[in-house]
Each structure stands twice: as structure tokens, then as C-alpha cells.
Amino acid sequence: MALVARAGSITRSPRGAARWWAKVAPYVFISPFYLLFLAFGLLPILFSLGVSLFNWQGVAQAQFTGLSNYGVLLTDPDFLTALGNTVIVWLGSTVPMVFLALAFAAVLNAQRLRLRGFFRTVYFLPVVTSLVVTGLIFSVLFDPSIGLVNDALHAVGIAPINFLSDPNWMKPTLIMALLWRWTGNDMVIMLAGLQSIPGDIYEAATVDGATGRQAFWRITVPLMRPIILFDFIISTIGAFNLFEEPYVLFGGSAGNIGGTQNAGLVTGTLIYQNSFVFFNFGYGAAIAWVVAFIIFVLSMLQLKLGNKPVD
């Protein structure tokens, strides 16, 4: 009874109403995120798990088939090809990218470097370019008949290479495009990390007679390990979600999304093809879940390796 009376007085008096609003307002202010996430994040995830258990071919009635989509997946040559290609592109781009990004960041962090701002801007510039434009520029540069790269090779006496349709060259071309587009992104993250290393550590090392190179390997790299690890993990996630660059480079809407002998097929384009070209939603969702699981395992593995204590 007392409670009801109190509640009544709160809503009646203007001060009480203000106090009530002050309590509720935070939840109102953050609610759009959670409501939209429920509708377009959580619901789809649960739905997607469910869908992956069905044979659902767009227009036709969905049939419950249990784990059979996952069973088919393990022996599907397209899936295995896409997975193999993705692993090659992932390792081929991530390792040099992280290495280059750290080197660029270390050099471009030096205060006395002339034109430091200019170099930072130029190295970062590709990151703002759209992935479609990146794919288009590289397909023009590496075109077998009108491409600049083949002209340059011709000038030094090398026969033209079909970078975009020779199965041996498709993945290296994709890796080059990825290095151009994404290295600046990793570099900026590394720069932020470098700036958080306290300078007196280097001062002490200099007093102790350490050279610049020793300081880099003994101080910078160990202290930067969490950031380097972070870069490795985001690059891994990026590689397994690759879509636009291979789609544009290897002729996505021309029907064969993976290019010659599927040498340019990656997991991202395979999911797209199954879901939105063949409208086989169930199978597409199953691939997406397996890929998500692989990303999770690889990230955990890297975290475990990266967090191993140094001597």
C-alpha cells in the first residue's frame, strides 16, 4: 500500500517525474542498439544456425535435413578448393603485411624524419579507396593486353603473363592487391601502439649502450606484441571474409565466380555464390558457420601462441 502511494506521488509531482526519468533515461538512450541488434543481429544468428540444418533452395519449401549440409560440405570439392585458396591468400598476405606495417610504423614514428606526414598520408591513402575500385585498378594494371605490368615485363624481355586468368598467377595478383589496400591500415594501428611505449625505456637502453637495432628487437617488438597479435587476428578475419577484391578481379558477375579452374575462389565468394546466385540458403549458411568456426579457432590459436611468455 505504501509502495503504491509512493509510486503515485512520484508521477504526480514534477520533481518526482524528473527523478523517474533520470533513472530510465540511460536505458532509453542505449536501447536503439539492443533493439536493432536483437532484430538484425541475434535473430539472424539463431535463424542462420537453424537454416543451416535445412535444404532450402530459395523458392522451394525448406526441408529439414539435419547436419547433412555439413556432411556435404566436407567432401565438396568447391569448398575444399575455396578453403585451400583462402589459406594461401591469408598466409601470403598477412605475414608480409604485418612485417611491412611494423617496419613502416617504426620508421614513420621518428620525430626527426623529414616529410613524415607526407609518407604517412601516402602509405595510408589506399585504405580509404573502395574495395571495388581497388579490384578494378588492379585488373587494369595487370590486364594481359593493355596492362602496365605486362608492358614493363615485355620491356625486360619477359613473355606476357595472364595474371587474372592463369591459375598460378591469380592468387599472387590478389595478394598484391591486398597488400596495397590494407598495409596502411595495419601501419596506423602499429603507430598508435608505438606511441604508447614510454620513451624512458629507450633512454635507459641507450645509456646501457644498446644500438638502434638492438632496441628495436629487444624493446619495440616485445612491447608491441599485443598490437602485432591484434593485427594478425584482424588480418585473419579479413582474409576469411574476403569478397569484393576476388569478386571484381576474377569476374564475379560473369557466372564463374572463382575464375579459371576456381583458382580465385575464396570462402567469401563461395558463400555469396551458394546463397545469392544459386539461392541455396541452407548450404550457404552452413559454409558461413564453418568459416566462422575456423576464424574462431585460428584467432584462439594465435592468441595462445602470441601470449606465450618471452624469456
Partner: peptide, 16 residues
């Protein structure tokens, strides 16, 4: 929620 791979949600989102 930032960890959720995008490819997982795009198919069900399309259906929704």
C-alpha cells in the same frame, strides 16, 4: 557483438 563474422548474418538478414 563486434566479433560476429558478417557472412554469418547476411543470409538470414536477407530472408528477414
Amino acid at each position: 557483438t563486434m566479433m560476429i563474422p558478417y557472412m554469418v548474418t547476411i543470409i538470414p538478414n536477407y530472408i528477414i
